[in-house]
Computed example of a mutant assay.
Amino acid sequence: MKTTYITLFTLALFVAACGSKKTTKKEVIRPVRYQQVHKSGGKSSRTFSGVARASTETRLSFKVSGTIQVLNVKVGQQVKAGQLIASVDAADYVLQYEDAKASLRNVEAQRQNAQSSYNRLRQLYENNNASLSDYEKAKTGYESAKATVNSIKKKIALAQSQINYTKIVAPRDGVVAEVLVETNENVSPGRPIVQLDSGKELEVKVDIPEVFIAKVKSGDTVQMRFSAQPQTLYKGIVHEVAFTASRGKTTYPVTVKILNPDQNMRPSMTCNVTFVFDYGIATPKMLVPAIAVRQDVQGKRYVFTVKDVKGESSKVVKQVVKVGDLTEEGIEIMQGLKESELVVTAGVSKLKDGQKVRLSR
């Protein structure tokens, strides 16, 4: 009995000790996306990244496979039309050419014999001194020999073309922008070897998000600042607007011609391109993405604003708002927000008032 009391007492102490320990849960800091509130309407500017490029870019490649023997250019080199760029080993194609020529000599002799036999039997047949079957046999043999000769001639022409294809020459004057292979490297037909930039004018390629592409029109004027010389403002005009998005992206390529280029510009330089969009609204409105606005059980509309930004950690506050019209740019906020406030735009459904978050663009 004494042993039983001791066991129960020990168990009670163990349970009490376990109960005294507090379980601490690690606070989850949820990542959210956000944007700064601004007024839109009338005319509004948007800036996108662009890259300068030559007005004509040509990627040169071989039409035959082989091992590169000659690589005659380097990046930045000026080349003239007709200048040799690169060549591959032509030995195999020369052998094919010589074999085809040797075959042609043999089949030419066979064709001549077949023609002589055909001419002789035709005369005999016309004089009733040869049978129809012998005449037709000679005729068939002659036509077959002619077809063989023509086939070999085509092989010779193909072999000659393949020999010619072992060399790449510059199609026009230009500058070597990129060399994509090395000497002694095996290449396949169609693989780019060198990029040649030509044309006196530079263009800028800009990727425009799908929500703005409908507002971009050919002939629109833009302003540009290049990263290499941010103090200089350049003017441009929209030259081409793509009808379909870039492969694997939700952006549309737009080509801008530079109206006041100078000698400081180079292909592949990056720049910021500013477009001015006219929304056709007389009075600017404060707009936020529609996904940022929620509705509680009482029917009140609200957003989460970002407060107490400290490094990676911030806090969100539930803010009741009064909404107006829903436009293609977002939903109008009539009351409850101030310009320049930060509003959560992604991850809203899982937030609570006062919750800590990590900001992510």
Rank of each mutant, 00 (worst) to 15 (best):
residue 252 Y to C: 01
residue 111 R to Q: 11
residue 220 D to C: 00
residue 146 K to C: 10
residue 197 D to T: 07
residue 109 A to S: 11
residue 47 T to K: 04
residue 225 R to V: 07
residue 87 S to R: 11
residue 357 V to S: 04
residue 276 V to H: 07
residue 329 E to A: 04
residue 237 I to T: 14
residue 320 V to Q: 10
residue 167 K to F: 03
residue 165 Y to S: 11
residue 330 G to L: 06
residue 305 T to Q: 03
residue 52 A to S: 15
residue 36 Q to E: 15
residue 319 Q to M: 04
residue 106 N to L: 10
residue 54 A to H: 04
residue 273 V to R: 09
residue 105 R to E: 13
residue 296 D to F: 02
residue 68 I to R: 05
residue 113 N to W: 06
residue 226 F to D: 00
residue 120 R to L: 11
residue 277 F to K: 03
residue 256 V to E: 02
residue 354 G to R: 07
residue 282 A to P: 00
residue 330 G to P: 06
residue 58 T to I: 06
residue 215 K to F: 10
residue 267 P to I: 03
residue 358 R to D: 01
residue 321 V to W: 05
residue 235 K to A: 02
residue 60 L to M: 12
residue 137 K to F: 08
residue 23 T to I: 15
residue 284 P to E: 07
residue 167 K to C: 00
residue 101 K to F: 07
residue 270 T to G: 08
residue 214 A to Y: 03
residue 56 T to F: 12
residue 52 A to E: 05
residue 290 A to P: 00
residue 48 F to D: 04
residue 317 V to F: 04
residue 316 V to E: 03
residue 77 Q to S: 07
residue 256 V to I: 15
residue 355 Q to S: 08
residue 262 D to I: 02
residue 86 A to L: 08
residue 125 Y to P: 00
residue 90 A to K: 15
residue 30 R to C: 02
residue 18 C to A: 14
residue 38 H to Q: 10
residue 148 T to E: 13
residue 75 V to M: 15
residue 35 Q to R: 12
residue 187 V to P: 01
residue 20 S to L: 11
residue 71 L to S: 12
residue 211 V to C: 00
residue 240 E to I: 06
residue 230 P to I: 05
residue 215 K to R: 08
residue 137 K to V: 09
residue 129 N to R: 15
residue 248 G to C: 10
residue 104 L to C: 05
residue 27 E to Q: 14
residue 289 P to Q: 05
residue 122 R to L: 09
residue 107 V to N: 05
residue 201 E to F: 02
residue 174 G to K: 06
residue 142 Y to K: 04
residue 201 E to I: 02
residue 312 E to V: 07
residue 272 N to D: 11
residue 128 N to H: 13
residue 335 Q to N: 10
residue 128 N to R: 14
residue 94 V to P: 00
residue 124 L to T: 00
residue 52 A to P: 06
residue 285 K to M: 07
residue 36 Q to I: 15
residue 325 D to M: 04
residue 53 R to K: 13
residue 11 L to M: 12
residue 278 D to E: 08
residue 200 K to A: 14
residue 266 R to C: 07
residue 32 V to S: 01
residue 72 N to M: 02
residue 279 Y to N: 09
residue 34 Y to Q: 07
residue 171 P to D: 08
residue 253 P to V: 02
residue 337 L to V: 11
residue 193 I to E: 05
